[in-house]
């Protein structure tokens, strides 16, 4: 267990090496409120909270702090009868590691025993304030699971990487067809670790359907834009459109204006126990940017012949 040996407790708490006990306490309280696993469900928060708590455990006690200052991160492996001040004086006369205030040079070697920090501290909450409680189950955690519209439609295997105690954890998850935005999915026992052998909490993945260039998802319904030429909209037509499930034909009735929603029943996101959502093609009438001479002429004829007034009609 060398998780703590490379950590600078002062930096973890964001205080100077000569900070007062009050400053240390204040820094710790602020960070604890920010990273406590019940306040912050991000899986990375637990590790941060553990580090901050360990730093506070060491620095809040003037005795341990003095030993940490003198011997550095490995201070726990220094026999208790080595006096920090004598050690410092000895090192200063030897001229080693000048001015750093930390051990590590100096011709003093510590026995490299296997000391389990968890054991020393009784786990995440076993220390300071945790006395009197038995094992405590770990906190539930939450992480987002970004999913494309296509994945939400057809499902598939996804790999999810989360930052965790030991670097990164990754899971392969089978995303079922028809997940919707905001859906919570539970991975039992994959949340925060329990103390003293208590079970871990659960990890909840929250499905987040990512923005798509042509689909907008609302619940299980999918909206997509259907562009039409004025004559297609006026005369009616049948157009192929892309849907997440493949190409489909939309029948555009004659006399369709912009903004009309044409429904393709059941072409939205599927539902394992119920009706699939619908796909709505929202019509939008487009005109040529630069009409050809012939087009222009025909539009002019139409304008002359027609008595249609779009602003009078409701």
């Amino acid at each position: 267990m060398d998780s703590s040996s490379d950590k600078d407790f002062y930096r973890l708490l964001g205080v100077a090496r000569d900070a007062s006990q009050d400053d240390i306490q204040r820094a710790y309280r602020k960070l604890a409120r920010q990273y406590h696993p019940d306040v912050n469900a991000d899986p990375a928060a637990e590790e941060r909270f553990k580090d901050v708590s360990e730093a506070y455990d060491v620095l809040s006690d003037p005795q341990t702090r003095r030993r940490y200052d003198a011997f550095g991160p490995d201070f726990r492996q220094v026999p208790p009868d080595v006096d920090p001040d004598a050690f410092r004086r000895g090192r200063a006369t030897a001229g080693a590691a000048a001015g750093s205030g930390r051990a590590g040079g100096g011709g003093f070697s510590f026995p490299q025993g296997d000391i389990d920090i968890e054991e020393l501290f009784g786990g995440l909450f076993g220390g300071r304030a945790g006395r009197g409680w038995g094992p405590i189950r770990g906190a539930d955690q939450e992480a987002e699971l970004p999913v494309t519209v296509e994945e939400a439609y057809s499902g598939g295997r996804r790999s999810v990487a989360l930052s965790a105690d030991d670097g990164r954890r990754s899971f392969d998850v089978d995303v079922p067809a028809g997940v919707t935005d905001g859906q919570r999915i539970r991975l039992a026992g994959q949340g925060g670790r329990g103390s003293d052998g208590a079970p871990s909490g659960d990890l909840y993945l929250i499905v987040r359907i990512m923005p798509h260039p042509s689909y907008r998802v609302q619940g299980r319904d999918i909206y997509t834009e259907l562009r039409l030429a004025p004559w297609e909209a006026a005369l009616g037509t049948s157009v192929p459109i892309d849907t997440p499930g493949g190409e489909a034909k939309v029948k555009v009735p004659a006399g369709t204006s912009s903004g009309r929603r044409l429904r393709l029943r059941g072409r939205g996101l599927p539902h394992r126990r119920g009706n699939a959502g619908d796909l709505f093609a929202e019509t939008r009438i487009m005109v040529p940017d630069k009409p050809t001479g012939a087009e222009r002429e025909l539009f002019e004829q139409l304008a002359a012949a027609s008595s249609f007034d779009p602003r009078r009609q409701r």
């Binding site: 406590h36 019940d38 708590s53 909450f125 405590i136 189950r137 770990g138 906190a139 208590a198």
Partner: peptide, 12 residues
């Protein structure tokens, strides 16, 4: 209850 325990332990 586990949450109560953790909160009590973390913030006294």
């Amino acid at each position: 209850l586990a949450r109560v325990q953790r909160l009590r332990a973390g913030f006294a």
